[in-house]
Amino acid sequence: MEKNKVNNKIKKLFNAKARFHKELAKIPIEEKIEMLVKLQEIADDIRAATGRIKTNLRFKI
């Protein structure tokens, strides 16, 4: 079993993810708010896909 080898690979993967999140944190607030609106849309689509009524809650920016 190459247990440690797999662990290192996973560790690398998690580190890359953490770096990606940190990069996202650095983008301008105006772009982040645009992304937030997308998130609100996605959350509403998921809501609808699971049989619930759409809320249409989203920022009008």
């Binding site: 944190a25 607030i29 998130l39």
Partner: peptide, 11 residues
Amino acid sequence: VIFYAEPILTY
């Protein structure tokens, strides 16, 4: 929080 971190869902 969004001012400092990546975008999170809020309404």
